[in-house]
């Protein structure tokens, strides 16, 4: 027994010495690593935007992990923006540093971090690759395989798609963060001041229910995650409800915002988020499709393929079905919630 303790102690001493040495080396190398990384990023920014003199650091209000830089020249005039877009590619996370001008056109970019298949995906670090992106705006970011004009890397479509989609996501966050959101002055909000995220949600609600003057937030009695808003006009009379609904579509989560009247018929809907197949499922955010839902009650929400009245998008029945069914389920849920509140109130 004594021998085992002795062995354990010897091993413990070795581990302690090793940990001590490592802690020391770590304390010496950690600042070097951090400084080098910061320096590298700064150099890349200067390389992409040589005429910029100042890079002003900003953190996105909605996504605090997203940091971007506002580039200004020596006369303090706005030149553009610089940020890092990242997304998982084929076998690694690809990080791309992007420089854009003030009209959101790509000036230059550089893949700064990737570990894709050698000889295929790694070609995204070649000089030729960024050239394919220069001068493009948000809407022109689409790979040739998806009907766009950006030439994919041969044998590395997934890598190309990941870079494009990371750029689109990042530009969207950037645009959202820079956009001024204006809400009518007579709009009454319970909580003030609103942060950007809440402001955008309010703006969306106003878009589907423009007559509203106040939105009262309610949480369902049965399920506190289910949130809906009662819309009031200037006389504080209820004119309807707005509610968010989401469901998995064909290849992405579709998020909707629906405005309902007092009888719970749909007044108008808006797609908040989707990433369905381009030209097929993605049609769901077009006005002509969304109009098909206006005036419908929960019972009337059924896709034509299932014997209902909602006409499907050609080639995207799954998307249509997802939207229709999630609207129906959400409205039904809201109905039972309102009933529960009414009976509860009368007691």
């Amino acid at each position: 027994m004594k021998y085992i303790i002795q062995l354990g102690l010897i091993l413990l001493i070795f581990c302690a010495v090793a940990s001590g040495v490592l802690a020391f080396v770590n304390s010496k190398t950690q600042p070097v690593i951090a400084a080098r990384k910061a320096l590298e990023e700064e150099q890349t920014r200067k390389e992409l935007m040589p005429e910029a003199k100042v890079f002003e650091e900003k953190v996105s209000a909605e996504d605090s992990t997203f940091i971007y830089y506002i580039a200004k020249d020596d006369k303090d005039a706005l030149l553009g923006y610089c940020f890092i877009a990242a997304k998982r590619g084929y076998s690694s996370v690809i990080r791309t540093m992007v420089a854009m001008d003030d009209k959101y056109t790509i000036i230059n970019m550089k893949v700064i971090d990737q570990n894709e298949t050698p000889g295929l995906g790694t070609l995204c670090q070649d000089k030729a690759f960024p050239e394919r992106f220069k001068g493009r705006g948000f809407d022109e970011l689409k790979a040739d395989k998806d009907g766009g004009t950006i030439q994919s890397i041969t044998g590395a479509t997934i890598t190309t798609r990941a870079v494009i989609s990371s750029l689109k996501d990042a530009i969207q966050i950037l645009k959202d963060d820079l956009a001024e959101i204006e809400v009518p002055a007579d709009m009454q909000t319970e909580v003030k001041p609103l942060d950007k995220k809440a402001l955008r949600a309010l703006k969306n609600r106003l878009e589907v229910l423009p007559e509203a003057k106040t939105f009262v937030e309610k949480k369902a009695l049965a399920d506190s995650n289910f949130v809906y808003y009662i819309a009031m006009d200037s006389l504080n009379k209820s004119i309807g409800y707005t509610v968010e609904a989401s469901k998995q579509g064909y290849c992405s989560e579709i998020k909707l915002l629906a405005a309902l009247d007092n009888e719970l018929n749909i007044r108008q809907i808006k797609v908040l988020n989707q990433d369905e197949t381009p030209a097929l499922g993605a049609e769901c955010q077009e006005g002509y499709f969304l109009k098909r839902f206006n005036g419908k009650s929960a019972n009337a929400l059924k896709v034509d393929k299932d014997g209902g009245m909602i006409k499907s998008i050609a080639g995207a029945t799954i998307t249509t079905r997802a939207i229709t069914n999630c609207l129906r389920d959400t409205i039904t849920k809201l109905k039972s919630e309102l009933q529960a509140r009414n009976t509860g109130g009368s007691k």
Binding site: C15, A18, S19, L22, A23, V25
Partner: peptide, 10 residues
């Protein structure tokens, strides 16, 4: 995290 290698192998 710098002790990861040594901790894992042990």
């Amino acid at each position: 995290q710098y002790l990861q290698t040594i901790a894992f192998i042990l």
